[in-house]
Write a protein that binds this DNA or RNA. Structure first.
Lengths: 194, 194
DNA sequence: TAACACCGGTACGGTAGCGTTTCGATGGAG
DNA sequence: CTCCATCGAAACGCTACCGTACCGGTGTTA
């Protein structure tokens, strides 16, 4: 019985190399430099190979960005503040010491003009929020947070400032920001503080 | 006595037209389409004219974005919440019903790769924050907010979620978000609530 | 080992932007 | 009215990317 799925070994090898190269090009040269030629060159691949897998550079960008996602493990230290701090500190580290933010900036712009990219970006963001939401939900179930809290809103308030500092204010993230944000945002919802 | 400043009438006319066209091109086509040729075409100007004023497309983008800034008037209704709500609602309207966000997305990406653009962006953001900061400072001086509050942090928490929803989560801004954010963020600092 | 799907390399004509130059028109200043 | 800086238009050679096509080599599979 024939296997109609795409072969794994050979095809996937080139495919992975191309996706990796696509991320590098997007990081180094941004949307203006993101061309099929440039990606093929960087990947040591043929343009024909690229067009075999992706009909447009936009489709390639979607697949490349989709491959970047890696979930943070959900911590459980017993205190909500500590759990959230751990997640946010990890995220700040990614924002400051990895190529991810430059990639994300290019992607945010591209998503403004391509609905497919916007949809993928929305999905990636939803997945990125999950660990924070999980920590908050667990805390609420344990009675550590008020049941009336809108956890989605709290997640917004906890994470948004770091995007804001990095991409909008274009300033380095102050050392104490994580703790200050947590202190202010979680001050309201604490069961013990009511 | 000769006037060594640039003449106003003729020179400034073309200059303004070019800046306007630059914004349109950046909005419609994004960074990849932002070329000297495209801007000149849209402005009905000659490439020579563009190169006379701006040596690179990056320099042109800086001037064009700088021309977009228009400060919000500082409201004074008597209540902090109402003042902030007025500013945030105006901002949400800009995010949802003007070409500004698409422009900003392109600019955020470009700023990742050009320090001059990053510096300008930081400055524009600082100016955009000022009305909110002014409202909060006045409220504190009037004794309506706790003196211990970090007003910069509060401004972050108040404004960041809207950028986040628009550019990161890529979702429409929920109708009640302005009020919910204000309620949660200003709940802590209220003098009357302490 | 033989067949085959996939791959990298190369070349193609076509299009577009680059940065510069030249020219004639135009409109404001003295 | 005259002068002259500025402007729009056009053309220049150059480079880069587009999308497609064909080739010979190579690893996988039967």
């Amino acid at each position: 019985m024939p296997d109609f799925r795409e072969p794994i070994s050979r095809g996937a090898g080139a495919r992975q190399r191309v996706l990796q190269a696509a991320l590098q090009v997007l990081h180094d040269d941004g949307p203006p430099g993101f061309t099929m030629e440039a990606v093929a060159r960087r990947a040591g691949a043929s343009k024909a190979t690229l067009y075999r897998h992706w009909s447009t550079s936009g489709a390639l960008m979607v697949d490349a960005m989709d491959a970047t996602f890696q979930p943070f493990p959900v911590p459980d230290t017993g205190r909500v503040e500590t759990d959230v701090a751990q997640l946010l500190n990890a995220f700040v580290a990614v924002l400051e010491h990895t190529p991810f933010p430059r990639l994300l900036a290019a992607f945010m712009d591209a998503a403004e003009r391509d609905p497919a990219l916007a949809e993928l970006h929305a999905d990636l963001t939803r997945r990125r929020r999950e660990p924070v939401l999980a920590v908050l939900t667990r805390a609420r179930d344990r009675g550590q947070l008020s049941a009336e809290l809108d956890l989605e809103l709290v997640t917004d308030l906890l994470t948004a400032p770091f995007f804001y500092h990095r991409f909008v204010a274009h300033r380095p993230i102050p050392p104490g920001l994580v703790d200050h944000v947590i202190a202010h945002v979680l001050a309201t919802g604490h069961k013990s503080a009511e």
